Computed example of a mutant assay.
Amino acid sequence: MNPHTTQELRLLPWTGAEGKPCYLIGDGHGYVSRLADDIESVQLNMAAHLLAHTDNLLSDRSATPEQLRYAIARLAESLRDVHRIARNRNTRHTTPGRTDHPE
């Protein structure tokens, strides 16, 4: 291992057995890091589409209680994903000793 490489702990955008968080230790440039970046991008895009769909559903006076409950359940799932991404990015951007700078 290169002694000049900064190792960091990254919270991954998926969970392991029993819903426990998964972490990656590394420099942030490997296959799993790129996969996690791709999954986070998909999750954020899905959240944006879900918000738009929910806005439409809320403005539709004929929306049923079942449709609204389903939308709320999906919003809760999406919010958990987005919250995990935000926690991860905050941790990565505030890690002492990082040599790169967040945008």
Rank of each mutant, 00 (worst) to 15 (best):
G97E: 08
E103A: 11
I25S: 10
D27M: 00
T6Y: 02
S33Q: 03
P96W: 07
D27R: 04
P3A: 06
W14F: 15
H101C: 05
N90T: 15
A47G: 11
L79P: 00
S33N: 12
R98V: 14
D37L: 13
D38S: 13
H49I: 09
N45T: 14
E8A: 03
V42W: 04
D81Q: 15
M46A: 14
G26N: 08
A52I: 01
I72R: 14
L44H: 08
H29P: 00
V42Q: 06
E66Q: 13
R89S: 08
A76H: 09
S78N: 02
M1A: 15
N88P: 01
G26H: 02
S59D: 11
T15W: 00
L51C: 09
S59C: 09
W14S: 13
T6P: 13
W14I: 10
D81V: 02
G28M: 11
R87W: 07
M1V: 06
Q43C: 06
I25C: 11
A76G: 00
R84E: 12
L68H: 03
R89H: 08
T6M: 14
H53C: 03
R80L: 12
S33Y: 01
H53M: 03
E40C: 13
L35E: 04
A71V: 03
E103K: 01
G28R: 05
N2T: 00
V42R: 04
G26C: 05
S62D: 13
R87N: 09
Y23N: 00
L44F: 04
P21W: 06
A48L: 07
E77F: 04
T54N: 10
R98I: 15
S33R: 08
T64D: 10
S33C: 02
T6F: 08
I72E: 15
Q7C: 11
G30K: 01
H29I: 05
R89W: 12
I72S: 12
Q7W: 08
N90C: 08
A48P: 07
T64V: 08
I25M: 14
V42Y: 05
E66T: 11
N88T: 10
R89Y: 07
E66H: 06
A86N: 09
D81M: 09
L68G: 01
S62N: 10
T5N: 10
L9T: 12
A17L: 12
H4M: 12
R87C: 12
E103S: 09
R80I: 07
T91K: 09
G16E: 04
W14G: 10
V42L: 10
N45D: 12
M1R: 08
T94D: 01
A36H: 00
R80C: 06
R34Q: 15
P65F: 11
L57H: 07
